[in-house]
Amino acid sequence: MSVPEMHPASLDLEDRLPIRRLMGLAVFGEMLAARIYGLMAQLKPEHAPILRKFASMEGQHATWFREACRCNAIEPDKEFADHELDYLIAQVNDHFAAGDCEALAVVQGFIVESMAIAIYEPYLQVADRYPGTRDVFARALEEERYHVDWMTRYLRLRFFDAEDEFIRLCQRVNVQGIDCIGGTMMKIADYLDSIGLSGADCAGSMMDGYSELLERVGIPSKEATRNVVGLFMPLIRKYRHGETIK
């Protein structure tokens, strides 16, 4: 997908830090997503073709986003993104070293994708402030949903008649996963507010979206809600009190 050359609106009118950080997270987060799907392909040769395709799609998103940034004179904040993603990379490396593809599927396919969808979807309402971003975010959103659907089917089949095992997997993965990715969501909430979204709505959508995915794989609704809400509560409290989130 090509990004049209356009002049950015309100280039001199606003502090660019929020959008630089958000786009940094989008660009480098997509690159990490490509790596994670690549690692999953190594662990699951039987699914390698589709997982490599997902990796390629995520890499393409990163390229689109970077190009859209260039058109809007936005320099993605790599340092911020690296700081946010380091913790996730460490988790991913641990899961890969343990040969735990299912943990990677939950972290990437559910938690990270839930965050991406929760932000990309409302972003479309303000995308025209940054010319050339609407089409690429709309396309990326559509493809992230496709990844989530595939991951949901994969996990449902893998844990068919083994819901307890899936619950144990989620309990193991969620504590670190939500602390890390949910923590990032809290840290960018104010940046989302500043570009015209609602950080709280994005966080709420991520929580609800992730709970819904857990339910689709077989975790009872109340249990899924309690697990996700319970892990977000400390993050929300830290956000509210201006404490260091992670």
Partner: peptide, 16 residues
């Protein structure tokens, strides 16, 4: 609507 309700609760707890 669950999504809207969760967003309402989240916003309230975040002090947004």
């Amino acid at each position: 609507n669950r999504r809207k309700l969760v967003c309402h609760l989240t916003a309230a707890f975040m002090g947004a």
